[in-house]
Design a protein around this nucleic acid. Structure first.
Length: 335
DNA sequence: AACGAATCCAACCGCCGGTTC
DNA sequence: GGAACCGGCGGTTGGATTCGT
């Protein structure tokens, strides 16, 4: 049996709100509150609107103390940092920015901040390729890479790209207590890695691999429940302080200086590791060009997932880890 | 000035989890 | 216990606006 619609869609108005509708809704809520029932609200007021639409209008536009546009650099940093840490949980991010709505932040990220952030890295790569080859940067970045990108969800890709710009000292594979029980997906990864190892020249082991296939598979797996719970438990305690967002220490480990560099073109001279990584920044550079370093994967993968996993249900975990598995296997030509 | 492309953002959609009955 | 209901959320859409040629 299907779910009953929240309203009679044939008799509700859709589209932009008129000033009269806004005034009615605002006046009623300010005087009587929502009454704990958005669905019944439009009928009480005499609005031909869906209750959900009323709720959205109130929350995103009419309620007091809202700010629109004009995001500060500090807010940019917070949004960026939180996005990298917890993903597209806009309501959580909005909770750290007084006066901002999740919708506003989501739009701001999608239209401006994302481009600002990822554009930097992309340009760095393009410029580097251009300098090396003398080619037009647009041509230097082959179509094959674009095919990889098309196979990824934007969220997974963005966050992976951002994570790749930094070295994270947290070593997942050095902490067996965090290793989850293997599931079929992980077994698949193991098999792929074993195949990869077997097909590689035994005398030419992949340089720099410091982990076993089992360990790599663990890293490519869904993040362990332990890490998820750990983060979930720590999440609320992180978001405390004089202002709402003071005290946040994102799981990604971005420092203020690093974020300033990414967002505001500040100097990276004082960031040897960062500047090195930025200069080489591209999602699949290491995969495509060297196949010799899995170090970034272990840390970044684990970190990206652990940070966002606290809201995953089991199906989502599988899907997201599958996405990252795609990153992994596509990059190494396993598929 | 005119047109198409790109961008912005308000609003909608559908899913999920919690609550109520 | 489970169906119905509701609020909340993130993803997506499409109209309006701005930009580039």
């Amino acid at each position: 049996m299907g779910r009953a619609p929240c309203c009679d869609k044939a008799n509700v108005k859709k589209g932009p709100w008129s000033p009269e509708e806004d005034a009615k809704l605002k006046a009623y809520i300010e005087e009587y509150g929502t009454g704990g029932n958005w669905i019944a609200l439009p009928q009480k007021i005499g609005l031909k609107r869906c209750g959900k639409s009323c709720r959205l209008r109130w929350l995103n536009y009419l309620r007091p103390n809202l700010r629109h546009g004009g995001f500060s650099e500090e807010e940019d940093n917070i949004i960026c940092s939180l996005y990298i840490s917890i993903g597209s949980r806009w309501s959580v991010i909005a909770a750290q920015l007084p006066g901002r709505t999740d919708n506003d932040i989501k739009n701001y990220w999608n239209t401006k901040l994302k481009k600002k952030l990822l554009g930097r890295g992309k340009n760095s790569r393009m410029n580097r390729l251009s300098a090396i080859s003398g080619q037009d940067p647009k041509d230097a970045n082959g179509g094959e890479e674009n095919n990889y990108l098309q196979n990824l969800s934007s969220s997974a890709l963005e966050r992976l790209q951002l994570h790749m710009q930094f070295q994270n000292p947290f070593s997942f594979y050095n902490n067996p207590a965090f290793w989850p029980k293997l599931n079929p997906f992980q077994d698949k990864t193991i098999q792929s890695l074993q195949f990869l190892n077997a097909s590689n020249n035994q005398n030419n082991p992949i340089q720099g691999i410091s982990i076993s296939p089992q360990q790599a598979a663990v890293e490519c797996s869904t993040i362990s429940n332990l890490k998820a719970e750990e983060h979930q438990n720590s999440e609320s305690s992180n978001f405390v302080g004089q202002s709402n967002y003071k005290g946040i220490e994102p799981v990604s480990g971005f420092t203020q200086t690093e974020l300033n560099y990414l967002l505001n073109n500040e100097s990276a001279d004082c960031l040897p590791t960062l500047s090195q990584n930025i200069a080489e920044f591209d999602c699949f550079k290491e995969m495509n060009e060297t196949k010799d370093n899995l170090g970034w994967w272990s840390n970044d993968f684990v970190d990206a997932n652990s940070a966002s996993s606290n809201s995953w249900d089991s199906a989502t975990k599988v899907n997201q880890s599958e996405e990252l598995y795609q990153v992994y296997t596509l990059g190494y030509g396993m598929q």
